[in-house]
Simulated assay, not measured.
Amino acid sequence: GGGRVALTNRVMRHYNFLAFTEMATRSLHMIFSTIMSTWIQASFGQHPKIAEYNALTDKVVSATAHVYKTVLKELLPTPAKSHYTFNLRDLAKTFQGVLMGDTKRLTEPEDVVRLWIHECNRVFADRLINKDDHAWFLELITSQVSTRFSLEYADLVPGRLMFGDYIVPGAEPRLYQQVEDFDKLVKTMEEYLDDYNASTTKKMSLVMFLDAIEHVSRICRIIRPPLGN
Rank of each mutant, 00 (worst) to 15 (best):
K69S: 11
H47A: 08
A135L: 07
H29Y: 12
A198P: 09
R122T: 04
Q96M: 11
E152Y: 09
D111T: 12
G164D: 04
L106W: 07
F20V: 10
A19P: 02
E152G: 10
L161F: 03
M189A: 12
S217G: 07
H14W: 15
Q41A: 04
E22L: 06
F32C: 06
F124A: 03
R89N: 09
I35M: 01
H29N: 08
L56H: 04
H66T: 14
T107A: 12
M23C: 08
M189D: 14
R224E: 08
F32D: 07
C120M: 07
Q144H: 10
Y166W: 07
H14C: 12
Y166Q: 09
L206T: 01
R89Y: 05
W39F: 10
T142F: 01
D132S: 14
W136E: 01
L138A: 10
V186N: 00
E152A: 11
D211C: 00
T107F: 07
E119Q: 11
K184L: 15
F17R: 12
V216E: 14
V11E: 09
G170H: 06
T201A: 15
A19G: 11
T188D: 04
Y53E: 02
H47Q: 07
K203T: 12
P77K: 01
E108C: 05
I167M: 08
N197K: 02
K203Q: 14
K131H: 11
K49Y: 06
K131E: 14
Y176A: 05
E119H: 05
S37V: 00
Q144R: 14
F44V: 00
P109A: 03
L156S: 05
Q46H: 14
S37P: 00
D211Q: 01
E52A: 03
G159R: 01
V168F: 08
F44I: 03
